[in-house]
Design a protein around this nucleic acid. Sequence first.
DNA 1: AACCAGGAATGTA
DNA 2: TACATTCATGGT
Length: 237
Amino acid sequence: MTDERLRDLFERLLAAYGPQGWWPGGRAPFEVIVGAILTQRCSWKNAARAIENLRTEQMLSPNAVCDAPVGRIAVCIRPAVFYNAKAKKLRAFAEHVRDGWRGDLDAFLDRPPETLRRDLLTIHGIGEETADAILLYAAGKPSFVIDAYARRLLERLGWIDGRASYATLRRLFMEQLPLDAALFNEYHALIVQHGKTRCRPRPVCGDGSDRCPLADLCLAIGSGERAAGVRSGGRVG
DNA sequence: AACCAGGAATGTA
DNA sequence: TACATTCATGGT
């Protein structure tokens, strides 16, 4: 079945918020992976601080993370919340690449997406969302990232059942959209931006008019009411 | 001053 | 399977 809703949603989010520029390039894959782990339940601002601390201490490489005491890693990433737990996660990933791939991160990443994904999920500290973030933002593979914002948005639009699994939501995006890493990159970032935006006051819906182009999407966040004009049919999952 | 931010592991029933 | 707890910074 062909369903244009997800494409339309993307266009509207892009028009409303503009390109988000997540991981624009120039960053080594390991730095992106570290970012994906450190930003778990943590603002990006604080995760970025932690990354800069690691860079300053020359600890932004798999080998450096393997060699350094976890305590020293923890000190660097303290701004990123749960720093002891995340220090172990960084160590677990670095050791996985060292032990299984002789520290060759490029070789580790250069595998079929589903193969790499299964491998990532065996590593301590990497769940489905982080695995997909690594596939997408570090390996450049079109794997759609599902997060709480995406689930909430689709649920309140009435497009999914709230109990739908992660895999169901991921399939929904990946079956209805072209498998394009740049598209998935931007789409996920836009969903996050939209979720964070309280468009009640501003900036998106704050033009004072009653015909905000995102009016129905604005209703989809915040107040728990279902968006206007959404029929109960067309649910997935 | 509670609440949340680009989650996952572990434990319990 | 489903739900609760732990982790423990910084901005609002």
